[in-house]
C-alpha cells in the first residue's frame, strides 16, 4: 500500500511548482489581443470584402445550380401550367386556371392525394415504433450486432428499381411469397398481392416498410450515440429499470432525431414514385396511384405537359405547406435548442 503524501509533500510536489510557474504567462496574456486588435482595425474594410468574396466563392456554384435546376424549372412549370400544351410547338393556348380546376375535379388525382396521405400516416405509424424497437435492441451489447445492423440497413442501400423488380417477381401469382404462405400451411391466405385493387396498397406499404425501415433504424442508432453515458448512469443509480430508462431517458433525448426522421419520411412519402411505379405502375384500377405517378402518366405518357405542370405545381404546393407546418409546429423546439439569452430572460 502506497503511503499517502502529507501536506508538506503536496506543497513541495512538482504540480505545485508548475502551478506557480503558470502565473507569469497568464498575466502576460492580456497584452496579446490589443496588438491583434490594432492589426485587424487597419485592414477591416478589406477583411469584410474578403469575407464577402469568400461567401460568394463558396456558395456561388451551389446557388447557380440551385437556380438553374430548381428555381427555373419550378417557375417554368408554373408558366406551363396555365397553358393547354402538348409539349410540341409554341405556348399559345392560354387556359388560365382550368388545368388546376380539372386536376382537383379528377377523381384519380384526388384519389392519388388520399393515397399519399395514407402512405404518410402508415409509414410513420408503422416505421416509428418498429424502427425505435429495433434501434434500441441493436444498441444493446448483443452478439452479431454489426451483422444485424447491416441486414436491417441493406434494403435501404439497394436501388429502388432493383428491389422493386425482385418484389414483383416474389409477389406474382404462384410466386415465392405464395409458395411460402402455402408451405407453412396457410394456403387459404394467398392473395393476388399486386393484382387485387383492394389489397395492392397494403402490399405496397409492406414493401415500403421493408425498404425504408433501415433509414429509420440507422438514424435512431446515430441519435442514440449522442445520448451521453452519464444520464444512463444517473438513471441507473436512481434504480431505474431498463424499460424505465428507455421510456423516460432515451426516447425523450432521441426526440430531435425522431422529429427529423418524421420530416424526411413525410417528404419521401409525398414524392413517392419509383417503388410504386415498378411494383404496380399505379394500378390495378388506380388503387395505388400517387401524385407523382399521376403526374408522369398525364405528362410523359399522355403528352399533356400543360396539365401535368399544373399537377406538379399542386404537388409542390402541398409538399411546401406540409413542410412549413411541420417546421412550425413539430420542429420548432429543435430549432430553438440554444435560445438566445434575452429570450431566456423574458
Amino acid at each position: 500500500m502506497t503511503p499517502r503524501p502529507t501536506g508538506a509533500d503536496v506543497a513541495a510536489s512538482p504540480r505545485g511548482a508548475a502551478g506557480a510557474a503558470d502565473r507569469p504567462d497568464r498575466s502576460a496574456a492580456p497584452a496579446r489581443p490589443s496588438g491583434g486588435g490594432r492589426r485587424r482595425s487597419s485592414s477591416r474594410l478589406s477583411a469584410r470584402t474578403r469575407t464577402r468574396l469568400e461567401i460568394a466563392f463558396f456558395t456561388g456554384p451551389a446557388l447557380v445550380l440551385l437556380g438553374l435546376f430548381i428555381v427555373v424549372p419550378v417557375l417554368q412549370a408554373v408558366r406551363y401550367s396555365v397553358f393547354d400544351w402538348n409539349g410540341l410547338g409554341p405556348l399559345d393556348d392560354f387556359v388560365g386556371l382550368d388545368n388546376y380546376a380539372r386536376a382537383l375535379g379528377d377523381t384519380v388525382f384526388t384519389g392519388a392525394v388520399v393515397n399519399n396521405f395514407v402512405i404518410i400516416a402508415l409509414s410513420i405509424a408503422i416505421q416509428l415504433p418498429l424502427g425505435l424497437a429495433i434501434a434500441l435492441l441493436l444498441n444493446r451489447d448483443i452478439r452479431g450486432r454489426g451483422f444485424l445492423r447491416v441486414v436491417i440497413f441493406m434494403p435501404y442501400v439497394l436501388a429502388e428499381v432493383v428491389a422493386g423488380v425482385v418484389w414483383v417477381l416474389l409477389l406474382q401469382p404462384n410466386g415465392l411469397v405464395d409458395a411460402v404462405v402455402e408451405g407453412v400451411g396457410l394456403g387459404g391466405l394467398t392473395q393476388l398481392w399486386l393484382g387485387d385493387p383492394d389489397i395492392a396498397l397494403g402490399t405496397v406499404m409492406v414493401v415500403l416498410t421493408w425498404k425504408y425501415l433501415g433509414l429509420a433504424v440507422i438514424l435512431f442508432l446515430a441519435g442514440l450515440q449522442g445520448v451521453p453515458e452519464d444520464v444512463y448512469e444517473a438513471a441507473q443509480l436512481d434504480g431505474a429499470s431498463w424499460w424505465q430508462v428507455q421510456r423516460r431517458v432515451t426516447i425523450p433525448l432521441l426526440g430531435p432525431t425522431i422529429r427529423t426522421w418524421g420530416f424526411l419520411s413525410m417528404i419521401g412519402s409525398l414524392q413517392l414514385f419509383d417503388m410504386v411505379w415498378i411494383l404496380t405502375g399505379g394500378g390495378p384500377a388506380n388503387s395505388t396511384v400517387t401524385m407523382a405517378i399521376y403526374l408522369i402518366n398525364q405528362g410523359t405518357e399522355r403528352g399533356l405537359y400543360g396539365y401535368a405542370s399544373a399537377v406538379a405545381v399542386l404537388l409542390f404546393v402541398i409538399s411546401l405547406v406540409l413542410a412549413v407546418l411541420y417546421q412550425t409546429f413539430v420542429l420548432r423546439r429543435d430549432n430553438e435548442v440554444a435560445p438566445k439569452p434575452r429570450r431566456a430572460a423574458r
Binding site: 417477381l169 401469382p173 404462384n174 410466386g175 393476388l192 399486386l194 393484382g195 385493387p197 404496380t280 394500378g283
Partner: peptide, 15 residues
C-alpha cells in the same frame, strides 16, 4: 383471363 390479369404486364418476363 389469367389469375391476377389486372397487374399482368404485356411482355416482360415469364409471368
Amino acid at each position: 383471363f389469367n389469375e391476377g390479369f389486372l397487374a399482368t404486364p404485356a411482355q416482360q418476363g415469364p409471368a
